[in-house]
Design a protein around this nucleic acid. Structure first.
Lengths: 235, 235
DNA sequence: CGGGCGAGGATTGTATAAAGTTTCGCCTGT
DNA sequence: ACAGGCGAAACTTTATACAATCCTCGCCCG
């Protein structure tokens, strides 16, 4: 943004206590350790991170703005619970943005970056090999963030961070349980196309990768019983 | 969002005092009444809106997350000052997203919506006719937001709100002063194409509209003197 | 007379306390 | 036995007080 010199609220500045809280909660959500609907009490989190409620509150507000936490007035903060409609919107947005990101990534592709991506791929493979589902899902999302960082497009990066976090919740809620290994192979193909500077192929691979993820979802209303009631009766 | 029933932090719920502050400041920025770099003191704003610093602070944090305010640690909040690089990113993102929004808007086009758009066009023309520059620039941005609302795509809407606000700052900073009437005619053409349900034409018109706005900008570093110094010397 | 230094004032960051709202258990009345 | 209401506890919201940091301005020294 305008101030590259200042560690903005969004910066990965770990010395900031608010950032630590936000990143801790985000990581927990990305690793599927926090389930949708979970209450995030201020005291509770404050005790965990040794911070006062003031700081916890600002962290939660930031997460709310990112769409992975819902703050309900006088009731508190809860891990968001995306609806099927939300899911479709998120993936449509990703199908639109990520090919554009890949294009920029190719422009910025340097040996150092390619190396970084390949190191990430091995990390993904290792996690998958050892059956670490939590690391797998986290790394899978991080791959996309890495490509966005590589693109150097800070606005796309910001948007995508939001979309990835929400995608994680969506996958947790709606993924069919019968689908085995996820897209590490896809990721490898994308890296390879980026390395070749083949924009056409890279965009196409990214697109089909996202389509495949979405195709693995079962986007039907869950908890039909109380969900219906909430929708029918709610304001 | 997951909770259509709850007025989220982002909702246009005017009864909320934080929202009032946020919307007041946003409006001032959109109308070019607050200039980039202006300091937004907490006490100052608190006095204006009769709110304690706690509420002002959360409003400012939300605005910072939207990218129209920069919060510098221990120094306060300032109206953002997008760089030319930021400007290019913002308009690239708009060129990507808004055609997609227009597509959805066509799907949702009803007589009521078309009517709403046309009423907006007359408002724009009236403001332009009476030479009200502030209303003009505000309504010009609102047109795009209106189309996004019409699309029913809440994620695109959220992204675009951010992009519009930043665009307003960018136009204020970088617009060539020799350009006369802005794009009310363009807007009319877009509405007409939407009314015809002609997606091809509507997308093309939106794209060329955005390109024209961007072409009217002079994206060179301003304040070469202290700007250069700040970039060279600043951390 | 210019530049460094330091105290004072102002402003932000953080914590804590007061106020308001919701929730849940319990108790009463039918 | 059960529905409904009352009340206390827990939590969020808001305000205020305190601490830390930064900026300004004047003073002193070279």
């Amino acid at each position: 943004m305008a101030a590259k010199t200042r560690p903005k609220s969004d910066a990965p500045d770990a010395s900031d206590r608010v950032s630590r809280i936000r990143e801790g909660v985000t990581a927990a959500i990305l690793e599927h350790r926090l389930l949708p609907g979970t209450k995030l009490g201020e005291d509770e989190i404050g005790d965990i991170y040794g911070a006062s409620r003031t700081l916890v509150r600002t962290a939660l507000q930031q997460l709310a703005h990112e769409g992975i936490v819902n703050i309900e007035k006088n009731r508190g903060a809860f891990v968001a619970r995306p609806t099927p409609a939300d899911a479709r919107e998120v993936f449509e947005a990703r199908r639109l943005i990520e090919p554009a990101i890949v294009d920029h990534a190719i422009d910025a592709a340097s040996p150092a970056w390619i190396n970084r991506l390949q190191r990430h791929l091995t990390e993904e493979r290792e996690a998958e090999l050892r059956g670490d589902a939590r690391a797998s899902v986290r790394l899978s999302g991080e791959f996309h963030r890495l490509v966005a960082e590589m693109s150097g497009h800070s606005i796309y990066l910001g948007f995508l961070k939001e979309l990835i976090a929400r995608s994680s919740l969506i996958i947790l809620l709606y993924r069919r349980h019968d689908t085995p290994a996820c897209g590490t192979d896809h990721h490898a193909g994308i890296v390879e196309a980026i390395g070749r500077r083949d924009g056409e192929a890279a965009r196409a691979l990214m697109l089909s990768h996202l389509q495949e993820i979405e195709a693995e979802l079962f986007l039907k209303e869950l908890d039909a019983a109380d969900r219906r009631l909430a929708d029918v009766l709610g304001a």
